[in-house]
Design a protein around this nucleic acid. Structure first.
Lengths: 186, 186
DNA sequence: CGCCGCATGTAAGAGGTTACATGATTCG
DNA sequence: CGAATCATGTAACCTCTTACATGCGGCG
C-alpha cells in the first residue's frame, strides 16, 4: 500500500555483484578489475567498494572468507555471490538501466566560450583529443588480443570494445574540427 | 598553511555563474535554460540550483533582486553576476576541466551479459538507440535554426551541436550492430 | 473548483570521493 | 633502508536528487 518504493537500485552494488558472479574476488581485485576491464566506462573507489561489500554481506547476497595464505602476500578476504545474490543480479537486469545524468564539462565550457580567456578552450579540446587518442590506442591493443581468441563467450567483450572504439574515433574527429574552429577565431 | 586546498571546484557553481553572465535570470530560468539548451550534456535540479544560488550570493559572486511585477506572474528573484563573479568564472576557465567519472550502465550490463535473462539486453540497446535517434532529430532541428542565423557569436553553439550530432550518430550505428549481435546469439 | 504552469525553497538521505590509518612483503 | 605493490578499511565531507511544502493566477 501507500508508497511504491521498489525502484531504488544502486548500480555500484550490481557492478560488484556481477564481477563476483564471474568469479570470487577480494575488494582489491574488484578495484583492479574495474580499472583494467571497465576503466573506459566505469569506475569505483575503495572508499565505496569496501562499505558496499559489507552491506552486500549483511544482506546475505555475498559471503566472505579469508583466502588461504599465498607466499608472502598479506591476508585478504575473498567474496563470492550466494544464490540470493544471483537472484538479485537477475532482478537488476530485469529493470531497465537508469538514464545517465549527462555532465560533460568540456561542452559546458564551450557553450560559455565567450567568457573564456584566450587559448584555454584550445588547450582543453587538445587534452580531450589526447585522451581519446590514448583510449583508442589501448582499445586497439585489446582488440588484437580478442581477435586472437575466437570464442563466443567474448561476444559481449567485443561489443563493448566496439563501443569504445567507435566513440573514441568520433570524439577524436570532432576534436580536430573543434580545434580548427577555435584556431580560426583566436 | 599545511594543506594546499586550492583545487576544489564545483562545476554546477560555474554552470550557474556562466548562465548568469550571459544575462540575469531567476532560479527557474536557469533550470529551464539548462534543460533546453544544455539538456543533452548537462543537468541540474532545483534542489541543487537554489541552495547554490544562496551560496554564490553569500560569497558575493552574484546579487539578487526581486523582479518588477509582470502581469499576473508570481514574484521572482533575479540573479546577476558581480565583478567578483566574473573573475571567479575566468579563474574556473583557467584550470582544466575535471576528468569525468565514467559511468555507462548499459556497457556494464553488456559486459556482464552472460548473467542477463534472455531479451533484456536487446531491449536495453533498443531503448538506447531510440534515445540516440530522438536526440539526433532534436539536434538537427536546432541545426536548421542555427544555419539560418549566420553569426560568429554562435560558433560555440555550433561546435557543441556538432558534438551532439556526431555522438548520437555514432551511438545509433553502434546500437544497430550490437542488436545484430544480440539477435544472432539468442 | 481543480488543474496546470509559474515560482521558490527545504530536509533527508543516497551516492561517492578523498584523505587518512595501518601493516605486510618484495625489490633495488 | 626506502619505495612500490599488495591489502583493508574508516571518517569526513561534498555533491546531488527526491520528495515535500507552499502559494499565485489563469483557464476550462
Amino acid at each position: 500500500m501507500s508508497r511504491a518504493t521498489a525502484s531504488r537500485v544502486n548500480p555500484t552494488e550490481f557492478a560488484i555483484l556481477g564481477l563476483l558472479a564471474e568469479q570470487p574476488r577480494s575488494g582489491y581485485d574488484i578495484k583492479k578489475e574495474v580499472e583494467e576491464r571497465l576503466g573506459h566506462f566505469w569506475s569505483e573507489s575503495y572508499g565505496h567498494i569496501y562499505p558496499m561489500l559489507k552491506r552486500l554481506r549483511s544482506r546475505r547476497l555475498i559471503t566472505a572468507k579469508p583466502s588461504e595464505r599465498r607466499a608472502g602476500r598479506p591476508a585478504r578476504q575473498v567474496y563470492a555471490v550466494t544464490a540470493a545474490g544471483r537472484r538479485a543480479l537477475t532482478a537488476w537486469f530485469e529493470r531497465p538501466p537508469m538514464a545517465p545524468r549527462p555532465r560533460n564539462e568540456l561542452l559546458l565550457r564551450l557553450l560559455l566560450g565567450r567568457f573564456a580567456p584566450a587559448g584555454v578552450l584550445r588547450r582543453d579540446v587538445a587534452a580531450y583529443r589526447a585522451r581519446a587518442h590514448e583510449g583508442l590506442v589501448r582499445l586497439r591493443a585489446v582488440q588484437l588480443e580478442l581477435d586472437a581468441a575466437a570464442s563466443d563467450d567474448l561476444d559481449y567483450e567485443r561489443v563493448v570494445l566496439a563501443f569504445g572504439i567507435a566513440l573514441y574515433t568520433t570524439l577524436g574527429r570532432w576534436c580536430a574540427d573543434a580545434e580548427a574552429m577555435l584556431a580560426e577565431r583566436g
